[in-house]
C-alpha cells in the first residue's frame, strides 16, 4: 500500500536532527509539517512532546532562543 506521507514523525528521525545541530521547537515543527506527515496539528504537538520527553535532550540558549540538542 502506498504511504500517504513522505515524512514520518518518529523518535529516530527527531534524534537524527538533534544530533546534527541544536534546534528550537519551531525548527523541529518545520521538519515535521502536518502536510508532510499527514498528522493533525494536535497529534504533531502531542507526539513530538512525548518523543522529546523520552529523548530528554540537552538544552542551550542560542540568540536568546532555547535549543535542544543531543550528543552521540
Amino acid at each position: 500500500t502506498p504511504s500517504s506521507s513522505d515524512v514520518q514523525l518518529t523518535e529516530d528521525a527527531v534524534r537524527r536532527y538533534l544530533i546534527r545541530k541544536p534546534m528550537t521547537t519551531k525548527d523541529l515543527l518545520k521538519k515535521f509539517q502536518t502536510k508532510r506527515t499527514g498528522l493533525s496539528s494536535e497529534q504533531t504537538v502531542n507526539v513530538l512532546a512525548q518523543i522529546l520527553k523520552r529523548l530528554n535532550p540537552e538544552r542551550k540558549s542560542i540568540n536568546e532562543k532555547m535549543h535542544f540538542y543531543l550528543t552521540e
Partner: peptide, 20 residues
C-alpha cells in the same frame, strides 16, 4: 501559516515546560 506554526510551538513548549 506562520501563525499556526507559532501556536504549535507554544503548545509544544507548554507541554515540555510541565515536564522539564
Amino acid at each position: 501559516s506562520s501563525s499556526e506554526a507559532d501556536e504549535m510551538a507554544a503548545a509544544l513548549e507548554a507541554e515540555l515546560n510541565d515536564f522539564m
